[in-house]
Write a protein that binds this DNA or RNA. Structure first.
Length: 495
RNA sequence: GAGCCGGUAGCUCAGCAGGUAGAGCAGCGGACUUUUAAUCCGCGGGUCGAGGGUUCGAGUCCCUCUCGGCUCACCA
């Protein structure tokens, strides 16, 4: 098997195309040509040369990039060279480069990365081209690229070999450029308003701040288990205790859960905290930030997601969870205030409640009845205290917390609330979570004594906000699956 | 975890009712000094996801497994 592959590269392949390319590497080296040459410190952008032809006609230029098409015509040849900016045609004639160089040129394959310099000209057919005087091979491609026209369609291959996906599917590249711009816009928006970007630990002795099962790892020197964080929340609030008043963190969280079109085991969140703020101030921040980001990256606040037109212009609608359920179910809001009222609704919609307790059951009704209908941006407010162990209670109704979730296109894209800063109440909430854990809820919060101690020193009242960056990118790039906005989504190992 | 769909040449895809596996592009050889998915002539290339079964004979039918997609469940 090895015998049939190339000696120089050691790549074992039965594929004749690979064998041929490997053999060329050996031949290049035998002839004193380095097939992985470089660097090229100064070069012209392909697309720019094409755009600026009128002012640069006839001048000496140098380009570097990947050969994506080759057209041979006897003693003259054409090639499409692509760099990140775009495409330019190379014109290679034997009378200009000489017999020997032309021979080497003919050994190039699709996918090879080359440097070429020469004169900027227009061909007989009017195409801006580099009339090559000399060239260098910078990287021999040993494997054939996916077909230029059919592209790379098979989804599994696109995720597994994302570099090929990026190479042949232009929309994919665009999505990740926009993703980068979104992150930049968020940082610009927040830092311009005086928020400080911070980094808190990813390895936690206790995974807190969200209801989720963590990944476990182990620190050898400390001799202790550590958890990959499920949320940065509890560390960021310690910073409020420490006197920072406006902070944010953008980073990865890790949750040991299933994978589907909206969940990846590692995902990126933005969390923002503002001392002396509350849920209302964070809602204003959310709608302004999302609209700003859309404007900056897409040039508009009106976007299209899976065929639906969505207006991100503030202010967004605000609706309590009870109002939302009442409206969709067509019942008076008061009915949502009692267990009996909830029973009636479950019955009326042929649903069977799987959870116990008023708060959990209200949320259950909300998620099944209301969520899919929330197309235009809306803040759902007043979440039951049972599902909100870190949020401050409403002063006039302690069953609920001063919490909100922004919904756009039927998806929750974030979560925010007035932060609970009463250490005694916080301890009771953790105890309730521990109780739920004892009853089998593996995702309930753990008692975090160190966090409570921090609160006991006094944390200013504060508003907090979390945004699922991947969900936001999906929304702004019209991507139906989270895998479309992650460069390397989690997959099972290749078999 | 359940249901449905898919995995055939490097890529994109055909393959009927079970009868020795096909196309386009890519590749290899040849012709060609201005092409634009160049053209023309010739040629090679397959563990049909893996394993088992039925059959004289399986890409095709049956079973198991595997990878992926979608939906549901799970996921505040």
């Amino acid at each position: 098997m090895t015998e049939r592959g190339a000696r120089a590269t050691g790549i074992e392949s039965e594929l004749d195309q690979v064998r041929v390319r490997c053999r060329k590497v050996d031949e290049y080296r035998a002839a004193g040509i380095e097939p992985y040459d470089g660097p090229v410190y100064s070069r012209d952008e392909a697309a720019r040369l094409v755009a600026e032809f009128d002012t640069r006609e006839g001048s000496a230029v140098r380009v570097a990039g990947r050969i994506r098409a080759l057209r041979f015509h006897g003693k003259v040849a054409f090639a499409d060279l692509w760099d990140e900016s775009g495409r330019i045609q190379l014109l290679v004639g034997v009378d200009r480069v000489g017999e020997q160089a032309y021979h080497w040129w003919q050994t190039l394959d699709l996918g090879d990365i080359v440097m070429a310099q020469g004169k900027l000209v227009k061909t007989r057919r009017g195409e801006v081209s580099v009339e090559v005087e000399n060239f260098r091979l910078l990287a021999k491609a040993l494997r054939p690229l996916p077909d230029k026209w059919a592209g790379l369609r098979e989804v599994e291959l696109r995720y597994r070999y994302r570099y090929l996906d990026l190479l042949v599917n232009p929309d994919v590249r665009r999505t990740f450029v926009v993703r980068s711009q979104i992150l930049q816009a968020i940082r610009d928006f927040l830092t311009a308003r005086g928020y400080l970007e911070v980094e808190t630990p990813i390895l936690h002795p206790l995974a807190g701040g969200a209801n989720a099962r963590p990944f476990v790892t182990y620190h050898n020197a400390l001799g202790m288990p550590l958890f990959l964080r499920v949320a940065p929340e509890l560390y960021l609030k310690r910073l409020l205790v420490g006197g920072f008043e406006k902070v944010f963190e953008i980073g990865k969280n890790f949750r040991n859960e299933g994978i589907d079109t909206r969940h990846n085991p590692e995902f990126t969140s933005l969390e923002v905290y503002e001392a002396y703020g509350d849920a209302a101030s964070m809602m204003r921040l959310t709608e302004e930030m999302v609209a700003f980001v859309a404007r900056r990256t897409l040039g508009t606040e009106v976007i299209s997601f899976q065929g639906q037109e969505i207006r991100l212009t503030p202010p967004w609608e605000r609706m309590t969870m009870r109002q939302a359920v009442a409206r969709v179910a067509g019942v008076p809001v008061e009915q949502l205030n009692t267990d009996e009222g909830l029973d009636e609704l479950f019955g009326a919609h042929g649903l069977k409640s799987e959870k116990q307790g008023y708060g959990h059951r209200l949320v259950e009704l909300f998620e099944t009845l209301v969520e899919p209908h929330l197309v235009q941006p809306v803040f759902i407010t007043e979440y039951p205290v049972e599902v909100s162990p870190l949020a401050k209670r409403m002063r006039d109704d302690p069953r609920f917390t001063d919490r909100f979730e922004p919904y756009v296109a039927g998806q929750e894209i974030g979560n925010g609330f007035s932060e609970l800063n009463d250490p005694v109440d916080q301890r009771q909430r953790f105890e309730a979570q521990e109780e739920a854990r004892r009853k089998g809820d593996e995702e309930a919060h753990r008692m975090d004594e160190d966090f409570i101690r921090a609160l006991e020193y006094g944390m200013p009242p504060a508003g907090g906000l979390g945004i699922g960056i991947d969900r936001l990118v999906m929304l702004l790039t019209d991507s139906p699956s989270i895998r479309d906005v992650l460069l390397f989504p989690q997959l099972r190992p290749e078999t």
